Simulated assay, not measured.
Amino acid sequence: MGAIDHLGIVTLGADDAREGLLLSAEAHWNQNEADWRFFLTKGTVFGIRDGDRLIATAALLPYTSNNAWISMVLVTQNWRRRGLATKLLDACLDAAAKQGLTTWLDATPAGATVYGPLGFTPTLELRRLRFAGSTSPATSKPRPAADIHLDDLIARDHCAMGFDRGALLGELSRRPGSQLISHGGAMALVRGGRTARQIGPLFAADAGSATALIETITQSETGPILIDVVSEHDGFLKNLTNSGWTIERPFQRMRFGRATIPSAAPPFAVAGPEFG
């Protein structure tokens, strides 16, 4: 730990978005500059610099009902395993405690082994899947959800999460290229990322309608697509893998602090591990 004692924690601002993007791109994550600007303007992003270079980050994004998300825990390659991530995570937890917030995060398997001993409790599990896309032109376009307004998506999300994320979903849906899409009672948000389009959150009454919506979306896309599926929807997962989707990695959702919301039926897919 002595090697990092001289490195202080700073609070980053909107002008640091491109530096943050360099860190997430180095880790092969899908966040784009707009994602970073959202965290930097709507949340608190802590950083550590080595001279002028940003070498580590962690973000605390508050939602409603005293809940917040921790994400963007990143350390550049040659500074890893020296305690920087833990130092920044502690800063997030301290800030959350001062505000009376229950914190959540979606951890990689390696991260979960670190967060568990710190007091994080496992909740649901996620699986990230990738669809490589087609090399041929799209044959059809998904029907825009003209009868499904943003308010409907926010209401479904509030019911599933237990707290309101209207500011997040509104910002994501207004980005260039984002679409609200519905099919047979299922609905989802599709947005751009650094290397792939991303589906989520996705809500449906059953695996069949969720799968039909995914088929509608993939027919309109030629590039790669990512989706983070809640693992308990095993029928939906099986349908996707049978349709050419491949599982990339698992995530473990974890909570620090007491539960402030009642359990509810989870969505079929989440907005992403960075947002919950």
Rank of each mutant, 00 (worst) to 15 (best):
R128I: 05
R197A: 09
T260P: 01
T216K: 11
I199L: 11
N78R: 13
G223W: 00
M72A: 13
E33M: 12
E26I: 10
Q219L: 13
S263R: 12
S173Q: 10
D151A: 15
A132W: 00
S220C: 07
G2V: 13
V10L: 12
N239H: 10
E125P: 01
S136Q: 15
T103F: 06
D52F: 07
A27N: 07
G111F: 10
M254F: 01
G20W: 09
R175H: 08
N30C: 08
L202Y: 07
D151K: 14
T139G: 11
S231M: 11
Q31H: 14
T41P: 10
D164P: 04
W29K: 04
A3H: 14
R194N: 14
L88I: 08
E125K: 15
A145R: 02
I247Y: 05
R82E: 07
D35L: 02
G223Y: 03
F131E: 05
Q77V: 15
R128H: 01
G192E: 11
P267C: 02
Q219N: 11
R156E: 15
T76F: 11
W104Y: 15
K141F: 15
S65G: 03
S263L: 14
A95P: 02
P267Y: 05
T86W: 09
Q198V: 09
G83W: 00
F46L: 04
A34H: 07
L93F: 01
I181F: 00
D5E: 15
T211W: 12
N242D: 15
K42P: 03
A207Y: 03
T102Q: 08
P176H: 02
G272K: 07
D151G: 04
N242S: 14
A155P: 07
T57M: 09
A196N: 00
E215F: 11
T135D: 04
L118F: 03
E19R: 12
C92A: 02
W69H: 07
I199K: 04
D94L: 05
T260C: 06
L89H: 04
N30E: 03
T44W: 01
K141A: 15
D164H: 11
S243M: 09
